[in-house]
Design a protein around this nucleic acid. Structure first.
Lengths: 366, 366
DNA sequence: CTGAAAGCGCTTACAG
DNA sequence: CTGAAAGCGCTTACAG
């Protein structure tokens, strides 16, 4: 505040001009230049690793940097370079943005994305969003981030126009989700269709013939829909009936899974297997089944999707479909960086892996 | 690149000067000023909500902003304002920074911190760190963030000097962890001592007399140590022996808990209860117990700490100590913002809540 | 290999 | 209530 007041008389060592170091708390490149006896431009070059600077000079600059604990001001350098060196992750929450826990699967993605960003020398800004909000603009347009990663389930049809707007604005983004033709922008996702097939085949192998599906199965939720389609495909091939009464909508939460299972049971108990579109749904379903006195897997075989950590710990342990989140995070970041550098980039479909556990093993428990 | 080349002849509508909108992709405040017929300063004022601007003018500016989809450039405004409006979260990983899952408790904290930041209108930069790295400087010094939040277990004694350096540099930070006198900077944590007491009392109430503790119990890991001290305090009061042979070091991972339990069993099986310093340790211990054919809770009562989501799903469900992560995140952010605004701020100890579940209920299972 | 200078896009005294 | 001007701390042509 009163920064320009003259130094107190006692401060007899105060100089009028040189060594203006720390005068305002933080050293600047001019302070370094002064200390190293070079120009500020040279400091900048030395720090950015330019080949144009003499080794000896570089050393002197580095010494000053160390002595003054100097760090280049990111705001200034970003402004000048017209990019930020940071990526933004928009994590969409399901309709219930309350204190409830975030879907562990996305948390896992978040971890891998963070790591991938760090590996590529970028910072990661994270933000939770609700689909209803005006998220499509903020981060990239204000130069806070060079590009954005979109993550989360949600009604695809509803937000599709926002994606299109993003494309129109020239915002660089990648999204995790179903990889379908004709989508705006670049999508990366796992092989949901194949995952659904794998689960259905496995369930049929276990002798199940009356299979139910818990989760939305419409183009509003393309990932769930793909899982459903893979599942239905196998049933059809195997000549197993697809009974519409055995499909109940659910979003990816434990409570929604619980409710869906209850709804199904209220409708009929004539089923011997349940494929839940996500592990959270499966865990809720497991509770509803147990409340009703139905045993897993003896009475009902159960499988989920995502292979969240809890899947290995529930009782019985839950059969699920593993998505390689580490790989996913890397590809997402990689792809976005490509886009930013204007290099060719395209979507990708990652393989999945069925993790068979107790909840679906009827043969073993017979 | 070749931005200053004259427009091609076919571009007959090109103007030499006015409506320079979008000339370079992104509108600036000058473009807005031009379009609204005011000065650039006025645009800035209008956008920042200054009372100094006429309503009518403000409307015109806003119209131009909407028309051009303008967003203020954060890098420029941050540079000018000399702060970034963003906070950084440094998440420390345990020694094993591999692909393994992050401790769910910290993930939960991350969620609440993110929400709290958003609520306060700040962005959140996140970064995983290893204790060994030179993390103490980067974020705040480079003006990427106005302050930092430190989160994660780790050897406190080892990184204490870094905290001190942070203080010396005038970096604003808060950390989540044990709240002890004489610590550098501000700490916020839960009442670990009380949590330990609650667990021990409960276990003794259940009739247990030979209690074991899994987790480091030294000043290197102050949180675990406090939990241990609370536990030991109750045993002492109750006249229950504290057998050093019944304490095994462990860090907060499932595998470490598994190993610790194995080590304990190898030493003796003369114990009837285990207090694990974290849920991850408890879950590992549960597996080791089960491998050895020891039943929980019939043979051994078990309790953890953190109340991660999985605690409710393991079999048997795990007794644990709940820390209010929502509140924690809010306080952390609040406190850091205070520090940044140079308002008085101090550490806090949050209450805990014992969540009794099957793993420790011996009375019920008798 | 180095330095002087322009300029990135804002915010904020300063002067009406 | 508004405008002209300075300056935040860098990076990068430009000119040696």
């Amino acid at each position: 505040m009163a920064a320009f007041a003259p130094p107190p008389a006692s401060c007899c060592l105060a100089r009028r001009f040189p060594i203006n170091v720390r005068m305002k708390g933080k050293a600047t490149s001019f302070d370094i230049a002064h200390m190293a006896g070079v120009s500020q431009s040279t400091v900048s070059r030395a720090l950015r690793g330019s080949p144009l600077v003499n080794e000896e000079t570089r050393r002197r600059v580095q010494a000053a940097v160390d002595a003054l604990n100097y760090k280049v001001d990111k705001n200034a350098s970003n402004l000048r370079k017209m990019h930020s060196g940071t990526l933004a992750l928009l994590l969409f929450e399901d309709p219930t943005p309350d204190e409830s826990h975030i879907n562990p699967f996305f948390l896992s993605m978040l971890g891998s994305i963070t790591r991938a960003c760090a590996k590529q020398g970028h910072d990661l800004l994270i933000s939770f969003q609700q689909f209803s909000h005006d998220w499509h603009a903020d981060f990239a347009d204000s130069n806070k981030a060079d590009g954005i990663i979109l993550l989360g389930y949600g009604d695809y049809l509803t937000h599709r126009d926002k994606l299109e707007k993003l494309v129109a604005q020239g915002t660089r983004f990648v999204r995790w989700g179903a990889v379908l033709p004709g989508q705006p922008g670049i999508s990366i996702g796992c092989d949901n269709f194949r995952g659904g097939q794998d689960v259905a085949s496995h369930l049929i192998d276990q002798g199940c013939r009356r299979l139910a599906f818990l989760g939305d199965a419409s183009s509003h939720y393309p990932e769930f829909f793909e899982r459903y389609r893979g599942y239905a495909d196998v049933l059809r091939e195997a000549g197993v009936a697809i009974d519409p009464a055995l499909q109940v909508n659910a979003e990816s939460t434990e409570s929604s899974g619980y409710a869906a299972m209850q709804a199904l049971i209220a409708r009929t108990t004539d089923f011997d297997a349940v494929f839940a579109a996500s592990d959270l749904i499966a865990i809720g379903a497991m509770r509803a089944l147990s409340d009703r006195g139905l045993r897993v897997p003896q009475d009902v075989a159960l499988a989920g999707f995502d292979d969240i950590p809890t899947a290995s710990f529930v009782n019985p342990t839950l059969t699920s479909v593993l998505q390689d989140t580490n790989r996913a995070g890397e590809i997402l970041v990689d792809c976005l960086l490509r886009l930013i550098r204007k290099e060719p980039a395209e979507g990708a479909v990652l393989p999945v892996k069925l993790m068979v556990r107790e909840s679906s093993l009827r043969s073993a428990s017979r």
